[in-house]
Amino acid sequence: MLLVLIRAIKGPTVIDRLVAINVIGTKSIVLLLFAGILFGQLEMFVDIALGYGLLNYIVSIAASRYYQHRKCLEPVHAAQGRQPS
């Protein structure tokens, strides 16, 4: 998970960071389940993990939908610095 975070920080484009964030989100579901098993309260943690999985999916879809319309891969300040509009 930390290694994926490296890609999320230094990724050359925005989409790379999006992929890394998606992977981290999926792994945090697994981490929540492990925490539930360790603490012995799996009833609560399973529900949280279920909601988290659905939210993660919606986040990926919404963010990629946004970048489909934006048609620009650099961060905002770099793009604005190049051609101010």
Binding site: I15, Y57, I61, S64, R65, Q68, R70, K71
Partner: peptide, 21 residues
């Protein structure tokens, strides 16, 4: 959910990258 959602999210991001050039 993961089995259905993960490939679909992959398509969405691939399509976004393709459209963004």
């Amino acid at each position: 959910f993961i089995f259905i959602g993960s490939p679909t999210a992959t398509h969405a991001m691939m399509d976004a990258g393709k459209k963004a050039g």
